[in-house]
Design a protein around this nucleic acid. Sequence first.
DNA 1: ACTTTACGTCAAGTATCCTTTACATTCAAT
DNA 2: ATTGAATGTAAAGGATACTTGACGTAAAGT
Lengths: 76, 76
Amino acid sequence: MLLKNHVVEYRKKYGLSQDRLAEKLGVSRQTIISIEKGKYSPSLPLAFLLAKTFNTTIEELFVFEEEKKGKRDAKQ
Amino acid sequence: MLLKNHVVEYRKKYGLSQDRLAEKLGVSRQTIISIEKGKYSPSLPLAFLLAKTFNTTIEELFVFEEEKKGKRDAKQ
DNA sequence: ACTTTACGTCAAGTATCCTTTACATTCAAT
DNA sequence: ATTGAATGTAAAGGATACTTGACGTAAAGT
C-alpha cells in the first residue's frame, strides 16, 4: 500500500516555502521534506492540517494506492 | 486539537465485532479499541483503510475539532 | 455451572512519526 | 566571489502509534 501526495504542488500553488509551511502547521521543516519526499506518511492530525491549509480534502491531497501485485484489473 | 470519530457506529452498522474489524484491517484488536476509545488517532494509512472499509471518507469518519483555547503560536 | 463471544484494562516492547542539529547544494541576487 | 533563500541529507533522540500477552467483566446459550 503506497501513499503518494500532492503536497509539493499545493504548497507551490500557495506560494509557500517548506520552511513557511512548516511554521504555519507547527511542525519542523524536516517533517515537510519527509512527507513531500514520501519518506513516511503524516499522522492523521497533520494530514487534516495540511488539507485544511490547502482548502482541500485528505482524499484529494493524499493518494492511496492499493498495491496488489498480480492484480491487473483497475477498478476505479 | 481534538479528533473524535464515528468508528463504533460504522462498525456496528456493518455488524462487525472489534475482533473481526481488526482482522479485516490487519491490525490488532487493541488498536481498534484504542481508536474507538479515543486513546490516539490512527495513522493516515489506517484511517484510509477504515474509511474504505466503511465506504465513507476520512472527513466523515473522523471529526476534526479545532481547539480554540489559549493560542500560543501567532501564525500569520 | 460452564463455555463462548464481545468488550475492556494494563503493561512492556517494537515501529513509525517527528524534532533537532549540523552540514551540503543550487540558484538568484548582489 | 559572496550572501541569502530554498531545498536536501544524515543521525540521534523523543513522542506517538501499534503489537502482544495476560487478565477481568458481562451477557447469551447450552
